[in-house]
């Protein structure tokens, strides 16, 4: 169930003097089971783009096709609710969307909206709370008793409960401590690898992008200016600097090694491999 975007443009406040085009003529194909990172500066159009995947925003020009369902500009689109079931959109700070008395009810809220029977929805909730790494004892608690990180997991479980094939996360690790952020990223990897979800991740954290994603999309000023596999993207820090992105630590380390005449292979991305290369190089010198 691939995502196909063709010549998509979106203007806010169209037909008024305040009209502002947020994304220009974007064409994009995202295949099944991909784990994509969408990066770019604030205001580059990332959020506008991902909100189209969920039909929260409709195209001003162009069209998109998700799982065979098409959305066009200039026509009244129907069946948007069905599309919303296909794409689970997790907003920034999703913990603010919790509202039910118990966590069980809150997770079951989404599936119930899409016509799942109450009992079945609760069964789904029991399953989802475990997927996000919490246990069943949470289900009867109020979501407002939980810590920030737990709330975020519950909110994500609420999205997963709708069983979407595509998951979009808008800066999911913002405000989490390093351990919480790492756990969150591991969860996304699990959803991608074990549950075969297509994952689109909006992130500012290059370490996460490098370590967890397969493909990188860079947006700037409403355009996609770079679209390539993650290995190619992080091959050298020059490209990143040109795009005004802070390179991850490992690239900085490789740069420092290069300055001192120690050569490390381009496709080395983990600290262990890097150390092995350094040791090998040093031995060669001796």
């Amino acid at each position: 169930m691939p995502i196909e975007i063709r010549n998509l443009s979106h203007a806010y406040h169209a037909d008024t003097s305040l009209a502002k085009t947020a994304i220009h003529d974007i064409s994009l194909h995202i295949g099944d089971g991909e784990m994509c990172a969408l990066i770019g500066e604030t205001g580059s159009g990332k959020s506008t783009l991902v909100q189209h995947l969920n039909a929260l925003l409709l195209p001003s020009e162009g069209e998109l096709e998700i799982n065979g369902k098409c959305i066009y500009a200039h026509v009244k689109n129907t069946g948007l609710k069905a599309l919303r079931k296909e794409v689970g959109l997790v907003f920034q700070f999703p913990e603010y969307q919790l509202f039910e008395e118990t966590i069980l009810k809150d997770i079951a809220f989404g599936p119930k909206n899409f016509g799942v029977e109450a009992e079945e929805a609760e069964a789904i909730a029991r399953e989802m709370i475990q997927i996000v790494g919490l246990d069943e004892s949470y289900l009867e608690k109020s979501p407002f008793e939980c810590s920030g990180g737990e709330k975020r997991r519950i909110a994500i479980a609420g999205i997963l409960a709708m069983n979407p094939n595509v998951l979009v996360f808008d800066e999911p690790t913002a405000g989490l401590d390093p351990k919480g952020a790492k756990d969150m990223m591991e969860l996304f990897r699990k959803l991608n690898k074990e549950y075969h979800k297509t994952v689109i991740l909006v992130s500012h954290d290059m370490e996460h992008v490098m370590n967890y994603c397969d493909r990188v999309l860079v947006m700037s000023d409403g355009h996609i200016i770079k679209d390539c596999p993650v290995k190619e993207f992080f091959r050298s820090s020059d490209l990143l600097r040109k795009l005004n992105i802070n390179p991850p630590q490992i690239l900085l380390l490789k740069d420092m090694c290069a300055e001192r005449g120690i050569h490390i292979r381009e496709d080395v991305f983990t600290i262990e491999e890097c150390v092995a290369d350094i040791v090998k190089e040093v031995k060669n010198h001796e």
């Binding site: 929260l56 609710k81 794409v87 989404g110 909206n113 999205i159």
Partner: peptide
């Protein structure tokens, strides 16, 4: 507006 969007994507109409 933010919460409306978040709940809409959870199927709220």
């Amino acid at each position: 507006q933010r919460i409306i969007k978040a709940q809409t994507s959870r199927g709220v109409d």
